[in-house]
């Protein structure tokens, strides 16, 4: 067995941070996060066993154990980043950025100082919030454009409506097609309304935010939320303007009408670290 070989895991970059803020934290390898200073910046790092990060995960992600260990890793990274983000402007690193030693981290701080400074300026005095909008399929069914006017649960549009032209009963094929068309039209209108609603919510939130991003809708099986996810947005909001964001969320949230508008956060500004002007809709890579 070879001697354990250490590396330096990088969590986030900040300008100023009281080391006391790191007290009590544990990192991705159970280590105590610490600071590496250089070029007027501070890197939040941890000493980790390289073997842990070098070993390829040969099991499929469907493996429960694998997902659990991945979750532990994600949450550990996230905990450290969030703890720091609560007290200072930070640029969070994507999971899994590891250097051979602290000296390499100082080199990177020096080489990339301008980039880090720019990224920090962008997020200083601001916080990322997430807003997810989901709706039951019924919420936008029916003839009304108002989400609150959701019709009966179930396939409201087609099933609940008694066929008005009963004379068609002697032409079952025609009747079937008519109902199919009507059903399709009704669903189409439901989609249109749902999409328009998502646009409206996003626009209202973006009006409060300095910057915004739309992420891909989450798979309900993973998010644990039923219904359609209409919007999965991230909003970078100036400190002090949070109430405006909350007001928008409250305005559109309508659980009784089958529309759920959920605010998550505060988040470290993960969604606002890519190059300026890039990926307005996010996730294009």
């Amino acid at each position: 067995m070879a001697e354990p070989e250490d590396g330096t895991y990088l969590y986030a970059i900040t300008r100023q941070l009281d080391p006391a803020e790191l007290r009590g934290l544990r990192g991705v390898d159970g280590e105590r996060p610490r600071l590496v200073e250089g070029s007027g910046l501070r890197a939040i790092v941890g000493t980790v066993d390289l073997a842990r990060f070098r070993r390829p995960p040969d099991r499929d992600l469907g493996d429960v154990e694998d997902l659990r260990s991945l979750e532990a890793l994600l949450r550990a990274h996230h905990r450290v980043v969030q703890a720091v983000a609560g007290t200072a402007a930070v640029v969070p690193l994507r999971l899994g950025t590891v250097y051979r030693d602290d000296g390499r981290v100082r080199e990177v701080l020096d080489e990339r100082r301008a980039d880090f400074e720019q990224a920090l300026s962008r997020v200083t005095g601001r916080t990322e919030w997430g807003v997810k909008v989901s709706a039951t399929p019924e919420a936008f069914a029916g003839d009304s454009g108002v989400a609150g006017d959701a019709r009966d649960p179930g396939d409201a549009a087609a099933e609940a409506r008694p066929a008005p032209d009963a004379g068609a009963s002697d032409r079952p094929g025609t009747e079937y097609l008519r109902r199919r068309r009507e059903d399709e039209r009704s669903r189409q209108e439901g989609w249109d309304r749902a999409a328009a609603f998502a646009e409206e919510v996003h626009a209202a939130l973006a009006g409060v935010a300095v910057e915004s991003r739309r992420h891909s809708p989450q798979d309900p099986r993973l998010s644990g939320q039923a219904g359609w996810m209409l919007l999965n947005g991230a909003y970078l909001v100036d400190h002090g303007r949070e109430a405006g964001l909350v007001a928008v969320v409250d305005r559109f949230d309508d659980p009784d009408g089958g529309v759920r508008v959920e605010l998550t956060g505060p988040w470290a500004p993960y969604s606002f670290t890519e190059a300026e002007g890039g990926a307005e809709e996010g996730g294009h890579r």
Partner: peptide, 15 residues
């Protein structure tokens, strides 16, 4: 995970 794995600044590590 959509943030930690898919967002955040990306810089080349040594490993």
């Amino acid at each position: 995970l959509e943030r930690v794995l898919d967002k955040g600044i990306v810089i080349a590590g040594d490993i």
